Computed example of a mutant assay.
Amino acid sequence: MNLKRKVEIAVISDVHLGTYGCHAKQLLTYLNSIEPKKLILNGDIVDIWQFKKRYFPKSHLRVIKKIMDFAADGTEVIYITGNHDEMLRKFADTSIGNISIVNKLVLDLDGRKAWFFHGDVFDISIQNAKWLAKLGGWGYDLLTLLNRTVNWCLEKLGKERYSLSKRIKNSVKGAVKYINNFEKVAADLAIENGYDFVICGHIHQPKMLFMTNKIGKTTYLNSGDWVENFTALEYQFKRWKLYNYNKDKLTPFFADEDLKEMDVKDLIAAITIVDQPKKNKHI
């Protein structure tokens, strides 16, 4: 019996495959629970900045294989570039089968305009001091390793997991101000350009906000991340939903059986050969 939820659009961002902070197993569980017509990857899916660590476990390969399987089965996969995968920007506006790479995206959703982009263009630290931003990324990764040790101990004691990085970000006034400014700038630009929805990633803060200014109104949405929050955005029945893995999961979907049995060499071979889309499944 097929229990997978059908959704018109699913949006994920800030997965950071290739880093210790990425929770690939939880993401794979989520991806196995849905059948999207469109899957929008809104930046920082693969963390190319930190690829030199040669850390890319089997669960991370499974995520890539699952995304490619979506495309082979007829799902339109749109990869919007971010700052951690900015090397892909040289391939913007190219397509392979049902997979396309873009820097930004505009969709008509039931008569309303939706504007998708990652959001790093608003980040001054990245635009003017990229080396500092990368240094911050490595420090963040060390914090994540420490956090995993803490959570391992908490789970052994039967206590709730704890996010050090999330706690730090939420308690620092400067970070809160930056997030508020990010949301306001994105909303103001969307209103100025006549977009009903603006959908971002980048700041790892899942959110749905109805925002107004003197000119007009828009809905700001952020898909969050799969490092701390485990969230995604879904569009179905003319409305948006913010999916939270920790709160919304119903039936436990795990990795497909064929993916479980595949070893690393088989997974690498599978993701380097693009399967042909099945007949009558083109979008």
Rank of each mutant, 00 (worst) to 15 (best):
residue 150 V to L: 14
residue 151 N to L: 08
residue 151 N to E: 09
residue 154 L to H: 09
residue 155 E to G: 02
residue 155 E to Q: 11
residue 155 E to K: 14
residue 156 K to S: 11
residue 156 K to P: 04
residue 157 L to G: 06
residue 158 G to F: 10
residue 159 K to Y: 12
residue 161 R to H: 04
residue 162 Y to T: 06
residue 162 Y to P: 07
residue 162 Y to I: 11
residue 163 S to V: 05
residue 164 L to E: 02
residue 165 S to F: 09
residue 165 S to Y: 07
residue 166 K to V: 09
residue 168 I to P: 01
residue 169 K to F: 10
residue 169 K to V: 08
residue 170 N to W: 08
residue 171 S to Y: 11
residue 171 S to K: 13
residue 172 V to S: 08
residue 173 K to N: 13
residue 173 K to G: 12
residue 173 K to Y: 11
residue 173 K to M: 09
residue 174 G to D: 09
residue 174 G to I: 05
residue 176 V to I: 14
residue 177 K to S: 10
residue 177 K to L: 10
residue 178 Y to F: 15
residue 179 I to D: 07
residue 179 I to C: 06
residue 179 I to P: 00
residue 180 N to R: 13
residue 180 N to Q: 14
residue 181 N to F: 10
residue 182 F to L: 01
residue 183 E to T: 00
residue 183 E to K: 03
residue 184 K to I: 01
residue 184 K to D: 02
residue 184 K to W: 00
residue 185 V to G: 01
residue 186 A to I: 00
residue 186 A to L: 00
residue 188 D to R: 06
residue 188 D to G: 06
residue 188 D to H: 10
residue 188 D to C: 08
residue 189 L to V: 03
residue 190 A to L: 08
residue 190 A to E: 04
residue 190 A to V: 07
residue 191 I to L: 10
residue 191 I to W: 05
residue 191 I to E: 07
residue 193 N to P: 02
residue 193 N to E: 14
residue 193 N to G: 03
residue 194 G to E: 06
residue 194 G to W: 07
residue 195 Y to D: 03
residue 196 D to R: 05
residue 196 D to T: 04
residue 196 D to Q: 07
residue 196 D to S: 11
residue 196 D to F: 03
residue 196 D to L: 04
residue 197 F to P: 02
residue 199 I to E: 00
residue 200 C to E: 04
residue 201 G to T: 03
residue 202 H to N: 14
residue 203 I to A: 06
residue 205 Q to W: 12
residue 205 Q to P: 01
residue 207 K to Y: 03
residue 208 M to G: 02
residue 208 M to P: 03
residue 209 L to Q: 14
residue 209 L to T: 08
residue 209 L to D: 13
residue 209 L to S: 14
residue 210 F to D: 15
residue 210 F to A: 13
residue 211 M to P: 01
residue 212 T to L: 08
residue 213 N to R: 11
residue 213 N to D: 14
residue 213 N to F: 09
